Computed example of a mutant assay.
Amino acid sequence: MLIDSHCHFDFSPFDADPAQYLADAQQVGVEKLVLPAIGASNWAAVQALAETYAGVYYALGLHPFFSAQHTPQDIAKLDVALAADSLLRAKNRSKCVAVGECGLDFAIADADKDQQVALLTAQFQIANQYHLPVILHCRKAFPEMIRLLRQHTPVAGGVYHAFSGSYPQAKQLLDLGINIGVGGTITYPRANKTRQTIAALPLTALLLETDAPDMPIAGYQGQPNRPDRLVHVLRELAAIRGESEQEIARVVTLTTAELFGIPM
């Protein structure tokens, strides 16, 4: 069994026939999906998918790429939503497994860096208040991300989504209890630095993801990525690490389930 730890399943094309896309994924062994939100505008959508489909879980957060759409009131709304969800979590009836997608994206033209830092800091505090892991997005802001992680270390851990950095950067994250999200990047031979880094990290530090419909797999450029293509990431990970697909699937699935509190 595999868990796609990062899939925007409420986006197109999945919203046209989610049951079929989920069946396609389950047919190849991708049994469960984690759906990170991008903002208050799609919290209801990811929650509805999780309530409809047994293998779907979700996270609530404010994605930095859409920071122009976020307001301080959204932080208050997030707190209220997670407070309500904590009652379900106490009865093991919640499918909200993390705060996210949250982070820093300084690659955006005219990015309001101070606003992004303030929003991320608030989300770290909320995640710690409700003892939830975080799903992190970071572009062109790694030093700032590490600084904030050190100041507000997530008590329930987290995952750095779409990692494409160096071994020293990965080590800094692991030292702070943050796992590494491995996706389509490693399927491209030119991504040599990332492939070498992922090969050298402890297997227990890794989560598999598609970021569908984004982050296409090599050979499928120009097409929306899909959760069933997680098996291509698994296959490439086995090749670059020299380990069996079965062992990688076993360990990574357990790591993902443990981080997010997903029942096995």
Rank of each mutant, 00 (worst) to 15 (best):
I262S: 08
A156N: 08
A48Y: 03
V30F: 13
V252P: 05
W43G: 02
Q169R: 09
A68P: 00
G181D: 06
I126F: 14
A48E: 10
G100D: 06
V80H: 10
T256Y: 04
T194Q: 09
I108E: 07
A239I: 07
R235S: 14
G219S: 11
L62K: 03
L173V: 03
I217D: 03
A54I: 08
E258M: 06
V155S: 10
Q47Y: 05
R229D: 02
R150K: 14
P168F: 12
P213V: 05
I178L: 09
V134A: 09
E31I: 02
A162H: 08
I126Q: 02
D4M: 10
I186A: 03
I126E: 01
G39V: 09
L33A: 04
H137E: 03
G177N: 09
G184D: 01
C102F: 11
F163V: 00
A205F: 11
A205S: 15
D105W: 09
G219V: 11
T197P: 08
Q73W: 11
P133C: 14
A249F: 11
G165K: 04
F66E: 00
L136N: 10
L33R: 04
N179K: 13
L88F: 10
C102V: 15
L2T: 11
I146D: 08
D74L: 11
D228T: 05
A50K: 04
D211Q: 09
T256R: 00
L173D: 04
A48V: 00
R150L: 05
S67A: 15
P168I: 01
A218G: 00
A127K: 02
K171P: 01
V231L: 04
V56T: 09
D105E: 12
Y167N: 08
C102H: 02
L176E: 14
H152I: 07
E31Q: 12
G261K: 03
V46I: 15
C138P: 10
L132D: 00
T253K: 01
D105C: 05
V30T: 08
T185N: 14
